[in-house]
Simulated scan of single mutants.
Amino acid sequence: MRTRPLKPSDADAAYALFHRTVRGGTSQFYDAEQRAAWAPARDAAPQDWGERLTTGFSIGAFRRGKLMGFFTMGHDGHIDFAYVALEEMGKGTAATLYAACEDEARRLGLPLMETEASHLARRFFLKRGWEVTARQTVIRDSVGIDNFRMRKML
């Protein structure tokens, strides 16, 4: 596995990975309507994805040139995207990407990191010393989707 910063040209591959991961990997916690609202079907990434992926700190994991996971973090320490391909779960890909984000947050001298985690991601972050600060319901296309506001003091 090789890691590198994301580029705007990674937007379609990142959206496809996001879509497949949400639709195929979260059914234990979210029903079909919630998954469809969270990751709408599209032929290509939304127009703003290239910018969203490359604003702040972003890192992707690649195997044989194929994107296998990506994390993005603002300069304030907020992790926005944290997605790994279904076949990469449990292989250390997410841990590698997360470690790069935490290293960057520490390099920037940030006092804490924050995120809004799904049920699945919550378990990942808890194992790394994060705490849940609130359970919340976000609305996407008139559908409520539960997630967790979390933080880690650095």
Results as ranks from 00 to 15, higher is better:
G24H: 11
L53F: 15
F81E: 11
H19A: 04
R52L: 13
F18L: 08
P111K: 01
R42Y: 01
A32R: 11
S58Q: 14
A44C: 04
D48W: 13
D76F: 00
L110N: 00
V22S: 03
R106G: 01
K91Y: 00
L110Y: 00
G90H: 08
I59Q: 14
W49H: 12
Y98D: 01
A45I: 08
T26P: 02
D80V: 12
T26D: 02
Q34M: 04
G69D: 10
A105N: 00
Y15Q: 10
A32H: 08
F70P: 12
G109L: 03
K66R: 14
A13W: 10
A44W: 07
A13S: 08
Y15D: 13
H75F: 06
A45R: 09
C101W: 02
A44N: 02
M68W: 06
E114L: 14
A95T: 12
A14F: 15
L53E: 15
R52E: 09
A39R: 11
E114C: 12
V84L: 08
R52C: 10
S58H: 12
E51K: 11
G77E: 11
Q34D: 05
A94E: 14
L67S: 14
A94F: 14
L108V: 01
A100H: 12
E33G: 09
P46H: 05
T26S: 02
E87I: 07
M89P: 02
D80Q: 12
A37W: 09
A100M: 12
G50D: 07
A45V: 09
E104Y: 14
A94D: 14
T21Y: 10
L97I: 14
R107A: 00
K91D: 00
A36V: 13
A13P: 11
E87H: 04
M68S: 12
M113Y: 09
A37M: 03
R52Q: 10
A82I: 09
A13L: 10
G65Q: 14
G65M: 13
E88V: 01
W38P: 04
D76A: 00
W38D: 01
D31V: 05
L110Q: 00
P46W: 09
L108K: 03
A44D: 04
A99K: 03
G65A: 11
L112C: 13
T55A: 08
R64H: 06
